[in-house]
């Protein structure tokens, strides 16, 4: 468990900060975005770090280090696929197409 629990607002602020720093856009689908914020918040509060909501824990922070949001692979996935693995962050170009995100390969295992 995390020492200090995060709220939804804390987690939304975190995602906005990441998106602005990386020059990305948050998933415009409010329901999808809400699910992911909820997932990130719950992962922080149970594991102590923002584990990607679409990746399973391997049991420790060290083992999950690369999958902590923003995951290391997002820097490759966003330019290549237009969004990150869990579809929390979009490239500006992809967001402007209005397309739906789809499952992409998980670089964690490749």
């Amino acid at each position: 468990m995390a020492d200090r629990q995060k709220t939804r607002e804390d987690t939304e602020l975190f995602t906005r900060m990441v998106a602005s720093k990386q020059g990305w856009v948050l998933n415009p689908d409010t329901e999808f975005y809400s699910t992911l914020v909820e997932g990130l918040m719950r992962n922080f509060n149970r594991y102590g770090y923002f584990l990607c909501p679409c990746r399973d824990t391997e049991g420790s922070r060290e083992a999950d280090r690369e999958a902590i949001c923003p995951c290391v692979w997002s820097k490759l996935d966003v330019p290549e696929y237009g969004h990150c693995y869990c579809a929390l962050y979009f490239s500006k170009e992809f967001a402007s197409t209005g397309k739906q995100p789809a499952a992409i390969p998980d670089r964690r295992f490749s």
């Binding site: 999808f32 699910t35 997932g39 909501p53 679409c54 990746r55 869990c86 579809a87």
Partner: peptide, 10 residues
Amino acid sequence: ALSTCGFCKR
């Protein structure tokens, strides 16, 4: 599935 995942929910 994962209870935290948007694609799983979808």
